[in-house]
Design a protein around this nucleic acid. Structure first.
Lengths: 335, 335
DNA sequence: ATCGTTTTCTGGAACGCTCCATTTGTTCCC
DNA sequence: GGGAACAAATGGAGCGTTCCAGAAAACGAT
């Protein structure tokens, strides 16, 4: 398969001599530069194919002092909101020649102190923090950064892009109120986004002269958190006709709690989630939810990064994406 | 924060002079080598901290001609079986100083022809293919590789590690038969794993003198595929008392279909899934399922890779992990 | 043809590490 | 106190690119 290069993997010199040009010209072709004659370009591409040459990104990163890669810090693969975010990032960045590297949530403390350290060692050109940022993370930050999905914790010098959880929380609560519900509970969790959604819920309730009922689960991402919290909520407030869960996963838990208390959705209890995850569209739930438009968040995060790469001194911005209500079958007027 | 290195990021030379040692000694400390005196080691670590030095992995990869990284090719973040796989890989590899890099399923064809190309450019030391391998993928393979979760397509030179889908399919089917079910349907999907599970279902049914009923969804990963297929199955076979779905996501779809046909689970219809995903343990489903023990698959994949890195000529192996039945509340004896 | 101009192409010098052969230092024994 | 044996530390070469300044080629206008 591979031509003979003495057992070695071929490098640009091999390609260059195969194509009868200089190594620099090969480099130009690899980077898709302008000002290369079509004939030479074709010759180089031919040679690349013949030798089964594959560029060495380590060398490119070292020599160019940049990796053309954007790092993304995730916290949990099971919380699927990041999928839309990555798609949005990709869509904006790939055409410009940037790759996206995900810093493994399981990163090992033995090798790097934080996922950010790992990405910095890779010499990424920018970082998207899609988790609750911690102090020790931003000590290491040395490149343009944006925090996505969280406006609670400010990272010095980092832009913030997120869906507007306050608006989303109001959207959800007012949807229920608009349908005629008066006794509406809220199941919340840990973390900044949950806090804002809860605050919006509370504000909406009070503005409408209604009494808020909030129960907090242990975590934010687990179905069991939603289940436990919803059980408590239902048992303490038997007159409840609707629940707003801080995310779809917790809504799934709440749906389990409702079933266990003999409540049908939406006949006996309306249920609304947040995130518009794949779960929400499942036929078993047909969950009304709030779509945080994570693709848009990703696209805006990419834009913020690109702007800051061009000029590191642009003022720090907070960009809010307007969430949308997605009405499905889990909400209805109270009996 | 950073000490003065003339605006540059500090490198090993800066650390070396700060600590009063040679660059080589710094390198040794970085790699955690033996034979460095505690005093010098401490001095170097001090200097690293003072300068806020972060090693350049591109340079390390280039110089060492290896990245100490294992690449993993995924196909869809929404199909959560990979989470256990990654955990298993991590657990084995991190203590040995290997990182795990996930090749983005959204990889852009503009930058790399396949995800494998991208990983090869990164000079990974091994590759785990956790998706259906394609011809053009293994053209690029040049390092130890293992295919995880699929024994259908053979990649030349690659080991295979997967849960034993045949055993799992039998486990599920015989669990239902053992409970007294006679009319059992199967909802299957695309892909090699699904094919094996279906074959095992069919074999078990026939061995027990029962007539198999298989319906195939469009895809394998979508809830809607399971929903559609289960609807068809139920409508064509009204006497059905149990459904075995090829994975938990499709089982969720099947649960939706059952609900829409007025069937209670497990009173009117028993339902069993496959994967033991987070979904299965949700209180709304409490789904009986087959656990493919993906953590174990990941651990074995790591071992296969390490063995082949040591000696590229060890014969190609197929390693099967024994799956386990996880009984929850979605299965019961027929009425 | 001749001379600018512009376009295309080239060689050399980094980039920041690892690896290896060698040097320097230390310990222990007779 | 001298040397063997071992442990610890070092300097140089090389990894495969990019970038840059400048050379060569192509093109136009006179």
């Amino acid at each position: 398969m591979t031509q003979e290069t003495g057992g070695r993997r071929p490098n640009i010199y091999d390609v260059a001599s195969e194509a009868g040009v200089s190594k620099s010209l090969v480099s130009l072709v690899l980077r898709g530069a302008h000002g290369v004659s079509p004939a030479r370009r074709a010759a180089v591409e031919e040679a690349i194919k013949r030798l089964n040459y594959r560029p060495n990104r380590a060398a490119a990163t070292l020599a160019g002092n940049r990796s053309r890669t954007i790092g993304v810090v995730l916290d949990d693969y099971r919380n699927l909101w990041f999928v839309g975010l990555l798609a949005g990032l990709h869509e904006q960045l790939a055409p410009l020649g940037f790759r996206v590297a995900v810093a493994d949530p399981l990163f090992n403390a033995h090798l790097d102190r934080t996922p950010v350290d790992g990405l910095m060692s890779l010499r990424v050109d920018g970082i998207v923090i899609a988790t609750e940022p911690s102090e020790e993370m931003f000590a290491a930050l040395d490149v343009p950064a944006v925090v996505a999905g969280n406006r609670d914790i400010r990272v010095p010098g980092a832009d913030i892009v997120t869906n507007d959880d306050m608006v989303g929380g109001r959207l959800a609560t007012e949807h229920l109120i608009g349908m005629g519900h008066r006794d509406i509970g809220h199941v919340t969790g840990g973390g900044g986004a949950a806090r804002l959604r809860a605050a919006a819920y509370e504000a909406s309730m009070l503005e409408n002269g209604l009494r808020p009922h909030i129960t907090r689960g242990q975590g934010f991402t687990m179905e069991s958190d939603g289940y436990q919290a919803a059980l408590k909520l239902l048992d303490q407030n038997p007159s409840l006709t609707a629940i707003f869960a801080a995310n779809d996963t917790m809504a799934l838990g709440a749906a389990g709690a409702a079933r266990d208390r003999g409540l049908r959705i939406p006949e006996d209890l309306s249920l609304i989630g947040y995130d518009n995850s794949p779960l929400a569209s499942a036929n078993l739930l047909r969950l009304t939810t709030v779509d945080g438009r994570n693709g848009e968040v990703g696209a805006k995060a990419a834009q913020a990064l690109l702007d800051r790469m061009k000029d590191p001194h642009v003022p720090v911005r907070t960009m809010l994406v307007e969430p949308e209500l997605v009405v499905r079958a889990s909400t209805a007027a109270p009996a």
